[in-house]
Amino acid sequence: MKKILIFALTIFVYSLVSAQNADEKKYLLTNKTNTFGISTLGFLDPYLSPLTYSGFGLNYEYQTNRFLSVQHTDISIQTKFNIETGIALNPQMSSDMLYLGANYGWGLQYHFAPFHGFRFLAGGLLDLDFGMKNVERNINNPVNLDMSANLNLTGVAKYDIPLRHKTLKLQLALQTPVLGYMFVPKAGASYFEMFDLGNMTDAFHFSSLYNKRGLNSVFTIDVPFNRTVWRFGFKTIDLRYSANDLVFNRSEFSFLIGTTFDTFNFAGRKNKAPANFISTNN
């Protein structure tokens, strides 16, 4: 009986210590979000046409967020990759514009919670933009490229709504370009002259709030289900920039749907998966 008691006590103490260790050990998770969107688009590109083209588009975004390290949970790293396609028509529907775009962003955000229930994030994002607009019926100016590298300011407000069985997460993310470098052709310069003859004079421009302004806002709500968290929301983009006496405008309104989940990455010699984790790579 005494032996049994000692054995049971040993097991109890061991499990208590193990539990305490588990509590103390922190794991850095990466939040990953995939969203798909359907959008209305508006483009003013005076290199292609003085008229504003409007239409519809589809977009996909993959976003990851994680804290810098387990010791630094006030700063997080964000990466974004977005692709978009759309078709727009001129007001008389006599000409169409095909749009293809891709965007990559990498940034850091500082977390703080000045009010109860709210969390705020503020930071910067290095942003690479590549887009192509094609008006097929144009002659010698059928394409214009939207190429830019930007430093954006980002801000996020988060608020959790606790319900009986689940917590809804509201999020408003804002982003605006502050500084950058962009490609804007001169109105009279053909792509033949720029790319065939190599005359890129005045084609690249420094951008700041003086000649490039915009606001990209994304409002989402995360709704947990049994084993998934679905994200619903909408996104608006209003971007205006100017160079070579041309004023460009891009506006967009998207409905978004996607999923968000946390993952832990095992990789390398020092970050092996525990034995009870099964991988095809083991």
Partner: peptide, 19 residues
């Protein structure tokens, strides 16, 4: 003259020597 094109408010296209 290398031609470029532009549009009128009624959607007509105009081609003209530009360069």
């Amino acid at each position: 003259g290398l031609p470029l094109s532009s549009e009128l408010p009624n959607g007509w296209l105009v081609r003209f020597s530009s360069s």
